[in-house]
C-alpha cells in the first residue's frame, strides 16, 4: 500500500472524503471550467451587494444555480449544526429552537439563506452582543472553479489546522467557491430578551452596561436590547431606566441604505448631523443604516487591491464564479432605490 493509498483509506474511514450524493450532484451541476460562467442564487435578499454589473433581474447569459438545502446534523451537546447552505436562516432557526439553541445569524429578511448570509458576510443588529457572522463558521465544503469539492476549516469548535479559508469565504460573494454545506457554531438561546428605548446619550449608557446585545441610536433616541437571565436583564434594565429608557417594542424600522464606519466617528458626530437624523447607527459596532454623510473609512490601499486580484485569479483563473460581483465594491452603500427594488 502506498502512502497515498493509506491516506485515502484513512480518510474514507474518517468520513472526510465527501460522499454526500447531494453535494456531489451540486458539484456536477456547477461542472468544470468548460461548463462556463455560473452564479449562485440564494433568497435574493441582498442580491445587489457588490454587484455593480449584475442586473437585478438575473445575470444575463450566466447560468444560475441554487445550493442544496436541508439541515444534515444537529448536535446539541457539541453545539454545532451541519446545514446545506440553500436552507433559509428561518428554517435553520426553527430546527434549533426546540433544543434551546440558535446560531448567531439574526435579523435577516425572510427568505435569506444561510449561504447568502455567509457569502455576503454582513452581520445583523445583534453583532454587538453575539459577534459577527464570520465567527459562526467552523467548516465549509464548497465547489471550486474546477468543479471539485474542497473542505475548508474543520469539524470541531476549535481548530487552527492550516490556513483559514473559512474567513476568506465569508463575505467573498461566491468568488472563491460556491458553498455547499457548512458547520456552524450554535449558542444557547437567552432565557429572557427585551428592548428598551428613550432619549439618552448612547455612549454614557454603553459605558455603564455589561455586554448589551444591541444598542441603536438615531441621533436622539436610543434602542437597547438586553438578553440573558431574568435577574441580569432586570439589573441592566434598571441602569437603562436611570438613563431615561423604558421598555418598548423593538427594534426600530431600519431606514434603507447601510454603511460601515469607524465607531469612533459616531461618538464625535457634530450636533448638526445628530439632529438631522435620517439614520440608525449600531453603537459599539459602526454600522449605519440610512443616510450617512459623516466620515467614511479610508478605501483599501493598492496592496489590498493587488491581493484581491491575485487571490481571485488563484481560485478562479477563468473568472467563471459569480462574474460581475466584486467584494471590494460591497462596501458601497446600497441606495434607497436599490433597496426598494428587492
Amino acid at each position: 500500500m502506498t502512502a497515498t493509498d493509506q491516506s485515502r483509506a484513512g480518510a474514507a474511514q474518517l468520513g472526510r472524503v465527501v460522499r454526500d450524493p447531494i453535494l456531489l450532484a451540486f458539484a456536477d451541476e456547477v461542472g468544470a471550467a468548460e461548463a462556463g460562467p455560473v452564479a449562485v442564487e440564494g433568497g435574493r435578499t441582498q442580491w445587489e451587494v457588490g454587484a455593480p454589473d449584475v442586473p437585478t433581474a438575473g445575470p444575463g447569459d450566466v447560468r444560475l444555480v441554487r445550493a442544496p438545502s436541508g439541515v444534515v446534523a444537529f448536535e446539541p451537546a457539541e453545539m454545532t449544526v451541519l446545514v446545506r447552505v440553500g436552507t433559509t436562516v428561518a428554517e435553520l432557526d426553527a430546527e434549533l429552537r426546540p433544543s434551546g439553541q440558535q446560531v448567531a445569524l439574526e435579523g435577516f429578511e425572510p427568505g435569506a439563506t444561510v449561504g447568502g448570509v455567509l457569502s455576503v458576510g454582513r452581520s445583523g443588529i445583534t453583532r454587538l452582543g453575539h459577534g459577527p457572522v464570520r465567527d459562526t463558521l467552523l467548516q465549509a465544503r464548497y465547489v471550486s472553479a474546477e468543479g471539485l469539492l474542497v473542505t475548508a476549516g474543520g469539524p470541531t469548535v476549535k481548530n487552527v489546522t492550516g490556513f483559514d479559508l473559512c474567513r476568506l469565504l465569508v463575505g467573498s460573494l461566491g468568488t472563491i467557491g460556491l458553498l455547499g454545506d457548512v458547520l456552524l457554531r450554535t449558542r444557547p438561546r437567552p432565557q429572557h430578551s427585551g428592548w428598551w428605548c428613550g432619549e439618552a446619550d448612547p455612549f454614557a449608557l454603553q459605558d455603564q452596561l455589561y455586554r448589551p446585545t444591541s444598542l441603536l441610536w438615531d441621533g436622539t433616541r436610543v434602542w437597547l436590547r438586553l438578553d440573558g437571565y431574568h435577574a441580569d436583564v432586570a439589573d441592566q434594565a434598571a441602569v437603562a431606566e436611570r438613563h431615561g429608557l423604558a421598555a418598548c417594542e423593538g427594534p426600530p424600522v431600519l431606514p434603507a441604505g447601510r454603511c460601515s464606519v469607524d465607531p469612533g466617528a459616531l461618538r464625535r458626530l457634530d450636533a448638526a448631523r445628530r439632529e438631522a437624523g435620517g439614520f440608525v447607527a449600531e453603537i459599539g459596532v459602526g454600522i449605519v443604516h440610512g443616510r450617512w454623510d459623516g466620515p467614511r473609512p479610508t478605501p483599501p490601499d493598492h496592496q489590498v487591491r493587488a491581493l484581491h486580484r491575485r487571490i481571485r485569479r488563484a481560485f478562479d483563473p477563468t473568472g467563471r464564479l459569480n462574474p460581475g460581483r466584486d467584494p471590494l465594491a460591497a462596501s458601497q452603500p446600497i441606495t434607497a432605490g436599490q433597496e426598494a427594488s428587492r
Binding site: 474567513r167 472563491i176 460601515s260 459602526g286 473609512p297 490601499d301
Partner: peptide
C-alpha cells in the same frame, strides 16, 4: 499594508481573518 480596519465591515475579502493563524 493594512488588513481589516476600524470599521466593522471593511471592503473586500477578510484578509485580516486570513492573516490570523497564518
Amino acid at each position: 499594508t493594512m488588513l481589516g480596519g476600524l470599521d466593522p465591515e471593511p471592503a473586500g475579502y477578510d484578509l485580516r481573518g486570513v492573516f490570523v493563524g497564518s
